[in-house]
């Protein structure tokens, strides 16, 4: 691994807003009101609307190209959604190399909120990292 990749792989999103959710709804077609309507979220047992887990996972995996460059490919993503990300929360994504094999890198990505509570835990496999 080169020096750059030995640095901590961390990215922070200070506040996840309705605009982020609205853009994801337009792109994904998933317009479940639990993601933007406080009353619906409360009926489902949440204090506030919850952000799509797949938005969080998409943001997490997108960081791989920022960290490793445009040429790499993700061949495997394996995720558990542990706790909801609420509108207005902050999001911190941390990446750690688990194994650096000859042709691929296995990484663990963790997303946490402002209370350091784990939201999403993901194992990924990347090919083409130089």
């Amino acid at each position: 691994m080169n020096k750059k990749r030995q640095q901590p792989l961390v990215e922070e999103f200070p506040r996840v807003t309705y605009e982020h959710v609205a853009r994801y709804i337009r792109a994904s077609g998933d317009d479940n009101p639990i993601h933007y309507d406080e009353e619906v979220a409360k009926k489902a047992g949440f204090n506030r609307p919850i952000v799509h887990g797949m938005w969080t996972l998409g943001v997490m995996t997108s960081l791989v190209w920022k960290w490793y460059g445009a040429h790499v490919q993700l061949t495997k993503v394996d995720s558990s959604f542990k706790y909801p990300l609420f509108l207005g929360d902050s999001l911190l994504v941390k990446g750690e190399v688990v194994e650096n094999r000859e042709s691929e890198i296995e990484m663990k990505l963790i997303a946490v909120n402002q209370d350091n509570r784990t939201l999403v835990s993901t194992q990924i496999v990347i090919r083409g990292a130089r």
Binding site: H20, R23, Y24, R26, A27, S28, W55, G58, V59, T61, S62, W65, K66, A70
Partner: peptide, 15 residues
């Protein structure tokens, strides 16, 4: 559709 999805998740890879 890919462009909109990529923008929504901050995927900035030009490919």
């Amino acid at each position: 559709e890919i462009k909109e999805y990529a923008e929504a998740i901050f995927l900035q890879n030009p490919i």
